[in-house]
Simulated assay, not measured.
Amino acid sequence: MAIHIHPPPPPAPPAAAPAQAALPEHDIVVNGTVIPAREVAAEMQHHPAVDAFAAWEEAARALVVRRLLLDAAAAAGLDPAEEDDAIGALLAREIRVPEPDEAAARRWFAANPDRFGTPEWWDASHILLAADPEDAEERSAARTRATALLAQVQEVPGSLPDLARLHSACPSREQGGHLGRIERGSTVPEFETFLAALVPGQVCPEVVQTRYGMHVVQLHHHAPRRTPRFEDAVPEVMRDLARVSWQSAVRHYIAVLAARATIEGFALSAEGEARADGPLVN
């Protein structure tokens, strides 16, 4: 009997993307200095965001804040030709943060326990059968394939790496599906939920469904969160508290500069004058 293999039908044309508001094309003026629209557009590549308009906002904010700092550096007699050096020297001169004492450090440690110690993590491997979350037929087919692969892994212990190399859509297939260390909060919640229910060495008895598709999962190791005693974390707590205090002081300083400045074409929001933990002021 002849077997005829027919080519799949051509894909349907993609749906038209929803219309988005046009990005601003005007220049921004800070204290008489023009920041051209093209500079804001070029800066956008350094500010990943949920959409293009949010990236434009971040880029414009960064350039406005930088202009404010350069103007302040020039007014202070610092050489603005070396921009980064001038900004660094200005902040070092203007920002004064007191050294935290033990009482403040203890309060900070108690109020922010997740900032210290070692987070919970897992070491795991998986096989991913990718499927569009909006395509019910594709997800059903992926689940069927994943269920069959899960049965093979359960029947032949140790077979997951070879099957991952053959079938997984994740780049980890090159390592036999090994994902390595996965810290709490670093992956999608549904994946973590199943990891947390497994014991080391166990293959998850059911297919794990996430927005990326269907997964066959095996846990190798689990390390619970470890929170140190305050006495053991003192140096780290002191550094963290000093850094946060400095960032807060920088934000306040930039707010003062913005209040004194004339800015046209951009509204510098009170809560977003500076990303004090970003490259602008590091």
Rank of each mutant, 00 (worst) to 15 (best):
S186I: 02
R243L: 13
A74Y: 07
P235D: 11
F230M: 06
D123P: 00
A72D: 11
L257E: 08
A103R: 10
F194D: 13
R239Q: 11
R106I: 11
R226E: 04
L198V: 06
A41Y: 06
P200G: 13
A146R: 08
A233T: 09
L198R: 11
L150H: 03
V237G: 10
H26P: 08
E43A: 15
L198P: 11
V237Q: 09
P200E: 12
E273P: 00
Y253V: 09
R143S: 11
L78K: 02
V234M: 03
P36K: 10
N31S: 15
S159N: 05
R184M: 07
A2R: 12
V29F: 13
L91M: 05
A62H: 14
G213A: 08
G265K: 03
H222T: 02
A142P: 12
L166K: 02
I95F: 01
L179Q: 04
R145F: 01
I263C: 10
A276S: 11
R38G: 05
T33Y: 10
V244T: 11
R38K: 14
P13K: 12
E264I: 07
S245I: 04
W56E: 09
A276L: 01
A136V: 11
A75R: 15
H252Y: 03
A92E: 12
R61H: 01
A74P: 11
P11Q: 13
R93N: 06
R260H: 08
I127L: 07
P11H: 12
S245R: 14
A92Q: 05
R211H: 05
R251I: 12
E39G: 02
P7I: 09
R143L: 15
T118W: 01
E271H: 12
A131K: 05
Q209I: 04
L198M: 15
I35G: 09
G201M: 14
A197Y: 01
H47Q: 12
A37S: 15
F109E: 07
A255I: 01
E231G: 06
W246D: 08
H126P: 04
L68H: 04
A86M: 13
E120S: 04
R173C: 01
V64Y: 08
A267S: 10
H222S: 00
S140W: 03
L241P: 02
